[in-house]
Design a binder for these strands. Structure first.
Length: 322
DNA sequence: GCGTCCAGGTCTACC
DNA sequence: GGTAGACCTGGACGC
């Protein structure tokens, strides 16, 4: 654990593309955080921290507008004054990460014609998909920790790794733990990581992943976006511990990441009944989702999993909550 | 209490 | 190329 005091700050305003619901976008209804599970949110303001451009940044984001006329005040905190060029890059990355540039209108037009999606876009109007920074590494660790474990246990493993090996950003009288950089994990003995963070066999995969990032490097999320969706996924599949499901979670082009749990949820929605065997149903459910929703598969997946409780009521189907 | 099963997948050794 | 089986850990469940 390394504590970093971020004493230099500056404030500016972000005007997201409307509609943009701040609350739904920075703290998803299913509990997904923006950058780190340790960020602090009081309903109007989010204090969080992230590495952008290899620099630790503290953030205080406050909503000043409405869903149809959104405005966000962003106060960023750094160790020292950055160059104008670096500051410009950080500002652009932040806008990109919070999904402020994304226009939802085309997806909404598509969704309102769909018997399932028309409910979720109504419930979650203005919710934007966000990304966890410019580095793939935190997403890849998260994907590995989600494998073969109930969500509660995945969260425990994640908290443990961040607390033990992440940075500790101190700013605005707040403390936020941040995902570790690959350099911090690449030199670890996997058996030590497994014992200290109780991640079991995943420790070998995480250390191997970190070593690959340090020794060979890996494209940023923004660089992967410039590739075709297929090429981006192929690149992600080169990472140790990352298979089809995990690559779909990470891919900035969006995939349709169906696992054992979501196979049950989407199987229920598509076919009106719970699959006999969730694990065996993964392939069938995934291809049905892609067939129905095509290029909007990720947005459809994202909206549905954030809205299961309401969707269960509206469609009169018992959906297993996350 | 104690034993067994299995979970938001992936990798590898077989065939 | 396809496919069992192994893999950490801890909670749920049956006895």
């Amino acid at each position: 654990m390394c504590t970093v005091n971020l004493n230099y700050s500056l404030t500016y305003e972000i005007k997201p593309v409307s509609p943009y619901n701040f609350n739904l976008s920075v703290r998803k209804p299913a509990g997904w955080s923006l950058f780190t599970p340790f960020e602090i949110y009081n309903g109007k303001t989010l204090w969080t921290a992230v590495h952008l451009e290899s620099t630790l940044i503290g953030l205080k984001l406050s909503s000043k507008g409405t869903t149809n006329n959104p405005r966000i005040t962003a106060k960023i905190f750094l160790e020292s004054k950055p160059t104008e060029e670096k500051l410009d890059k950080i500002k652009k990355l932040l806008i990109h990460c919070i999904g402020a540039e994304d226009d939802l209108r085309e997806f909404y037009a598509f969704a309102r014609q769909d018997r399932i999606l028309r409910y979720v876009v109504d419930d979650l109007y203005g919710m934007h998909s966000t990304s966890t920074g410019d580095n793939v590494f935190p997403d890849a660790i998260l994907a590995i920790l989600l494998q073969m474990a109930p969500l509660k246990r995945s969260n425990e493993m994640m908290d443990s790794i961040i607390r033990m090996y992440g940075d500790n950003a101190e700013f605005d009288r707040k403390t936020v733990y941040v995902w570790p950089l690959p350099q911090k994990l690449s030199s670890l003995n996997p058996s030590v990581l497994a014992r200290e963070c109780k991640v079991g066999y995943r420790a070998k995969r995480i250390v191997k992943l970190a070593v690959k990032f340090v020794e060979e490097g890996f494209p940023t999320l923004q660089e992967l976006e410039k590739l075709s969706p297929e090429d981006s996924k192929t690149k992600l599949l080169e990472l140790p511990g990352i298979g089809d499901y995990s690559a779909d979670i990470i891919n900035p082009h969006g995939g349709f990441p169906i696992d054992v749990w979501s196979a049950e949820v989407f199987g229920n929605l598509f076919f009106g009944k719970k699959p006999d065997n969730n694990r065996q149903a993964v392939k069938e459910v995934k291809s049905e989702g892609i067939r129905r929703w095509g290029k909007w598969s990720w947005m459809a997946f994202f909206y549905v999993v954030q809205d299961l409780e309401s969707l269960s009521r509206r469609m009169n189907i018992k959906l297993r909550l996350a």
